[in-house]
Amino acid sequence: MIMEPQKRISSKGLIVWRIYGAIHSFFVLLVAGGAIALTIIFDWPIWIIGVALLVFALCAYVFIVLIPTIRWKRWRYEVRENEIELQHGVFVMKRTLVPMIRVQHVDTQQGPILRKYQLATITVSTAATVHEIPALEVDEAEELRFFISKLARVADEDV
């Protein structure tokens, strides 16, 4: 294929995604725990406990280890003078081109977890779509936001 975008997102992003994954699997844990508790209370067959634990372990592995790793490995982006290129996807690889003159505005966002790791997410909005570059170093994100918004200002065509 054509030359791939080169820049990766911060390696701390991987840790953050693992934390998200842990939060997700916590809900699975709740359900599994509920199933186990019910099994003990109502004397249901013992294999239910085994299945519940297995499902939990599998979900935890997928959410915490597998998906974040693949996702992080695959995430690439590049901001050029006249376009932004993104490449990401776990099962389906997706590459997107966003020309600078189509960019309407740029935001940076930061949740509590991202803040703890000094990361921020950039969202780039066009008139029709919204794109995200997740988990960048705060300084880099700020710089990028400034860069994009400066370049995007050239837009003089209608929408």
């Binding site: 997706k94 590459r95 081109l97 966003v98 779509t129």
Partner: peptide, 16 residues
């Protein structure tokens, strides 16, 4: 071309 906002290419494992 100048009205298109974005273009994406996707490929899944099988497509690849």
């Amino acid at each position: 071309r100048n009205r298109i906002q974005t273009v994406s290419v996707r490929e899944s494992y099988f497509q690849n």
